[in-house]
């Protein structure tokens, strides 16, 4: 495959994740791998913000990269943190041990064999979800065309992550809705069961169901299910004495 074909293939693969059920870690690990294989970065890593806003390491192209990013998080200084905090690109910077913007981080990065870094925010409009770190063993800056591609990768990943979060939230709410409706159904069925067994009306049946749940410190839905399944002694519904 030519470079152009590879790039197009990558963009299509990443866009696919927008519609398919997919794993965020897989997507981001793929992103770091592509930065190495297609864009000539020596190593790449992605951090994502948690719900509380602190960054977590989620994907790295190599073990050396992983160690370095863990250090960046511990030291709370480095290009990924800056890109995330500002929501802007952190331009190519040659590292010098003990000085510059990130003195402690630079020392560790140089030790790991990296000479220069550069970082992009994972961002969609006003929302920054994380950042992409690119490390180089040399000092030459990345070709601007590669930077554009890296940003395109980062943008696609951002859209994908935000989409995934919205979908997950919708799914959670829909399940909640379904559970609420289903447990109400079981309660209504139980009212019918008790009403028929005890020869009382539905309001009285519900009162007995609720009293039993309260007196036995059980959830109303669980008692209703047991009444429907017939796993509660049936005689409890027929007399008030048994409710205690």
């Amino acid at each position: 495959m030519s470079r152009e074909e590879s790039l197009i293939r990558s963009l299509v693969d990443m866009a696919d994740t927008l519609v398919d059920d997919y794993d965020v870690i897989d997507l981001l690990t793929g992103l770091t791998d592509r930065c190495v294989t297609l864009l000539g970065a020596s190593a790449a890593g992605v951090m994502l913000a948690s719900a509380e806003g602190d960054l977590r390491l989620v994907a790295s192209s190599s073990e050396a990269m992983r160690v370095l990013e863990v250090f960046e998080l511990q030291a709370q200084e480095g290009p990924c943190l800056d890109a995330y905090r500002t929501g802007r690109r952190v331009e190519h910077e040659n590292l010098r041990s003990g000085t510059g913007r990130w003195p402690r981080f630079s020392a560790v990065a140089l030790q790991a064999g990296f000479q220069s870094v550069f970082a992009l925010p994972l961002r969609l409009r006003e929302t920054t979800v994380g950042a992409l770190n690119l490390f180089h063993v040399g000092q030459a800056p990345m070709d601007e065309r590669d930077v554009v591609v890296a940003q395109a990768f980062a943008d696609l990943a951002s859209i994908s992550i935000l989409q995934h979060r919205a979908t997950t939230e919708a799914q959670r709410l829909n399940e909640q809705l379904s559970v609420a409706l289903t447990s109400r159904v079981v309660i209504e069925q139980a009212k019918g069961v008790i009403s028929e067994r005890a020869g009382v009306d539905l309001a009285e049946a519900f009162a007995r169901l609720r009293a039993y749940a309260r007196n036995h410190n059980l959830l109303l839905t669980d008692v209703a299910q047991a009444a429907v399944d017939g796993t509660v002694d049936r005689s409890v519904w027929t007399g008030n004495a048994a409710l205690g």
């Binding site: 209504e188 069925q189 139980a190 019918g192 008790i194 009403s195 429907v228």
Partner: peptide, 8 residues
């Protein structure tokens, strides 16, 4: 669902 409970 009330009726289903009774019929059951």
């Amino acid at each position: 669902h009330n009726a289903a409970g009774m019929v059951s």
